[in-house]
Amino acid sequence: MHVDAAIRSRKSVRRFLPLSIPRHVVEHILQVAARAPSGNNVQPWHVHVVSGQAKQALCADLHTAATTQAEQHSAEYHYYPDNWFEPYQGRRRAVGFDLYEALGIERDDLPARNQQMLRNYQFFDAPVGVLISLDRRLNTGSFMDLGMFIQNIMLAARGQGLHTCAQAAFAWYHQIVRRHVPLADHDILVCGIALGHEDREAPENRMETPREQVANFASFHGFHEREASPSTLA
């Protein structure tokens, strides 16, 4: 798969088929992903992969915690701003509305919305769950390195014909995760990643999130129009 095709076809898949993935495929994906850029070659990522009974046991405990003890859990880092503002709030709302519309869930149907949220803790039925952590003694630059590593996982998965969903939702339940995998005390649980074969019949997987045009987020300086024309670059 051409890298452009991998990037363009990557998306957040929220329903997977019950098809197993061999360990060697997951190891290959992680080996490729580990070529991510890393300042001074620190390579700050730590990974725990769960499948089979190990995944089922983790998911069962996560579901219990999320339904009965949610107020007792919190993430160890701030992913989103404390106070939303535009244009980010509008984009956030739009993707939420689009997802619930695809699922046929009304905006005021809080029980149905909550049930969809809880599916995070089943890795959306993916056969493999990947848990990503980072040593808390490192600094902001290592978060950037980790982001590139996570992106590499998702693109390498596309190269194997697989799909993913990166899930910050797991960060809130790091205490539960620590009971199931050897997550070091000095590690922050950053996210989970669902990995598997896309269920192409699922309506939520047909949703495509929009992206801003380059002109809306980039400026160019010192170029000539002739240099930037497609005919010149071909």
Rank of each mutant, 00 (worst) to 15 (best):
N120Y: 02
N41K: 14
F143K: 00
A168L: 06
I188S: 04
E86I: 05
H221Y: 14
Q122I: 02
F143P: 03
V3R: 04
H186N: 15
A156M: 06
R200D: 11
V13W: 02
G159P: 06
S12L: 01
F217N: 12
A36E: 06
V130I: 15
S9W: 10
A215G: 09
P210T: 00
T67W: 04
H63G: 05
R158H: 10
A102K: 08
P230H: 08
F97Y: 14
G129C: 12
L30N: 11
F97C: 11
E86K: 07
E198P: 06
A36W: 03
Q43D: 03
H197G: 03
L146T: 06
H46N: 15
A184D: 12
D185A: 13
V177S: 01
H163A: 12
C191Y: 06
R113D: 01
N205V: 07
W45H: 02
F124A: 04
A57K: 13
R178F: 07
N40Q: 15
P203Q: 00
N205Y: 02
V181S: 03
S219G: 10
V26E: 01
L62T: 10
S229H: 15
Q115E: 15
A228Y: 07
V42C: 08
Q56T: 14
S9L: 15
L19W: 14
E201M: 09
A34P: 11
A60Y: 07
A34N: 13
G196K: 01
L131T: 06
S142M: 09
R119Y: 08
V128R: 03
C59A: 13
